[in-house]
Computed example of a mutant assay.
Amino acid sequence: MIDIPDSDRQLIDQAIFLPMLLTVLQRDLAAIDKGSFKLKQPYQISIEAIIRDVQKDLAAAKRYLHKNNIKIIRGRSENNFTFYMVMYKGGEEKRSYFNDKIRNNVEDLLDYYLVGRQEER
């Protein structure tokens, strides 16, 4: 295992989990569009605003990783794990994520963007 600073680890995790959060939000937006909500527009506006925030944060993380020559390669999914290879300053680190942990991390991010991010403003 290579020594990756916590700040870089956090950005690596963002680059892995934020695209998953975008997928969830886009599916939820489609479900709202097709659903029988009485007042769709407030939900749509809220989710679209969160999508823009997530896209902005993901773009910043990707720019940082690109600028610092950090690469993430998604590997295979096997049983209950998904594997990633992180190329960091000439070294390689293999990382495995328990799929339930991935779901929990994405859920935590959703909570952050729904509640925590609003409290920062």
Rank of each mutant, 00 (worst) to 15 (best):
D3W: 06
D3A: 12
D3Q: 11
I4W: 08
D6L: 08
D6V: 15
Q10C: 07
Q10P: 01
L11K: 10
I12S: 10
I12G: 12
D13R: 14
Q14G: 11
A15P: 03
A15K: 07
L18F: 05
M20C: 10
M20H: 04
L21R: 05
L22W: 06
L25D: 03
L25V: 01
L25Q: 00
Q26A: 02
D28F: 00
A30T: 14
A31F: 13
I32W: 09
I32G: 05
D33I: 07
K34D: 12
K34F: 08
S36K: 12
S36G: 07
K38N: 14
K38M: 15
Q41D: 15
Q41S: 15
S46W: 01
I47S: 04
A49E: 14
I50S: 07
R52F: 04
D53H: 09
V54C: 05
V54M: 12
Q55I: 03
D57Q: 09
L58C: 02
L58K: 03
A59T: 10
A60Q: 13
K62Q: 13
R63T: 13
L65S: 01
L65N: 03
H66M: 06
H66I: 07
K67T: 03
K67R: 06
I70W: 04
I70Q: 11
I70G: 09
K71Q: 13
I72S: 05
I73F: 14
I73P: 08
G75I: 12
G75E: 15
R76A: 00
S77K: 08
E78R: 00
N79F: 11
N80P: 00
N80F: 06
F81T: 01
F81S: 00
T82H: 00
M87T: 11
K89M: 06
K89I: 02
G90H: 09
G90A: 01
G91V: 01
G91W: 01
K94L: 05
S96P: 07
S96M: 10
Y97V: 01
Y97I: 11
D100I: 00
N104Q: 04
N104M: 08
E107C: 00
D108A: 15
D108N: 09
D108E: 09
L109N: 05
Y112M: 05
Y113V: 02
Y113I: 07
Y113P: 05
V115Q: 06
G116K: 05
R121T: 07
R121I: 13
